[in-house]
Design a protein around this nucleic acid. Structure first.
Lengths: 242, 242
DNA sequence: ACAATGCTTCGGTTACCATCGAAGTATGAA
DNA sequence: TTCATACTTCGATGGTAACCGAAGCATTGT
């Protein structure tokens, strides 16, 4: 009975609400201090410190000392990937902590999923890239086409750099709010950075939501049109499902 | 702070050792009774009953009454997929419950991963299919080629039936013992059933390991050769990594 | 009708762990 | 040096949940 990986250990690490909240906060991609994470978890710093030590021992978190601050991040993108998949799973069966809240619409519209764009905008972007033949959907995987590569170069993204990395270029990631796939992988990361660099969007202070400026929003929607146009939100036809 | 899916809930469900053991046992693909699961979890039936109720409420398990037995299975292959990914993650950071045990070699050699073949043989099969051009690796996805489709027809697997399903044909699944990918998805399932149907292999009573008969083993190794031959276990070159 | 099997419910016990106050360490600022 | 900030460690507390014995249903067999 004692064969195989110890899923209970990491399940237990994620299973505590305070720890789960802290991990979720770190899905924003930013490094956060222990004090900030305590606030995110709704607990005191002492308790947070204990939790953080456990998460670090379990190799879910990495820390970096800087002066008298201690910055925590997810240990690597394997952790982000794991949390993504659990979120997708949980959302798929309605395990939502539905405290609707005022910030939620913004979060559903566009948010950071560890290092790439998620939410309605994230899903729309992938749908559009697939529709215009920049990305092929193969099984459950995604592949950048030659056409896509040249198009992205126009936007200012050089694929060459990314290709050399060991990390996959395109990955599909199940979006918990839209229940459809959006684009992850190093390309997903590059696109989001590109939006930040161009000043199209900014991350908010303590939330994972991404705010587009009104003009940038127009440009985004033009750059990533959807075929059965007419508004953004409800779309029929399911490219790149699950 | 209260936005998004409740990952803590499902983390907590998986986080209990007894529950984790029961879920792992169900990764064997067979439906098991409450009594069998109690044994798998190392607890009494009363306790198991309580755990099973929780897992069912959390939609991780489904049950089917049959006479005075109650058969439990994973609720759907989303659950299997989730457990797979957690296992892969846990194994990747050495979170093993290393009680080596006598059955472990068999488990590492060939075992059931929910509904498809895993372990050394599973990895070898995928490697071989990729090497002979039956399956293409695209990003992190897998795609069956035309050549692969016709080859599989010779073995006795009709892809037509599988294609109509909504479930992806090929999926790559990270193998926790080999730390490499093996073939999942409906094709992975079909191949394993095929081995069972042909009498090449059988599942063991209470373990997830798969036993090949000596002659079948020879045929399997011939059917799925590896390029840098010379034995089965240590292979160089990394087709289909991660 | 009666016994046997499979499972659930109830009640009480136990053990663990999340939590916080208070005190201790480290870094930086005045 | 002294104070302030950021964080950790220690110790005590409390609540929760895992656990099992015993009893209660349900189904099957004789």
């Amino acid at each position: 009975m004692k064969e195989g990986p110890d899923i209970a250990q990491i399940g237990a690490l994620i299973g505590d609400p305070a720890r789960a909240n802290m991990l979720t906060a770190l899905m924003g991609g930013k490094a956060l201090t222990a004090t900030e994470l305590a606030a995110a978890g709704g607990i005191t710093v002492q308790t947070a410190s204990s939790h953080l030590a456990k998460l670090e021992a379990g190799q879910l978190l990495a820390q970096r000392k800087q002066g008298r601050h201690r910055y925590f991040t997810l240990a690597d993108d394997g952790v982000g990937k794991l949390l993504e998949s659990i979120m997708g799973f949980a959302a798929g069966r309605g395990h939502l902590r539905h405290r609707p809240g005022p910030k939620e619409p913004a979060l559903r519209k566009a948010r950071i999923c560890y290092d790439h764009l998620a939410g309605d905008y994230g899903v729309r972007m992938l749908d559009s890239l697939v529709a215009k033949g920049a990305i092929d959907v193969i099984g459950d995987g995604l592949a950048l086409t030659d056409k896509g590569e040249s198009e992205l170069k126009c936007i200012g993204i050089d694929i060459g750099d990314l290709k050399s990395s060991r990390r996959p270029l395109c990955r599909s990631c199940l979006d918990w709010s839209e229940r459809r796939a959006h684009l992850a992988g190093s390309l997903g990361k590059a696109l989001l950075s590109n939006f930040f660099d161009k000043g199209w969007a900014r991350r908010t202070a303590e939330s994972r939501s991404v705010i587009f400026s009104p003009e940038a929003e127009r440009q985004f929607l033009m750059l990533f049109p959807v075929e059965f146009a007419g508004g953004l939100t409800p779309r029929e036809g399911q490219p790149a499902q699950l």
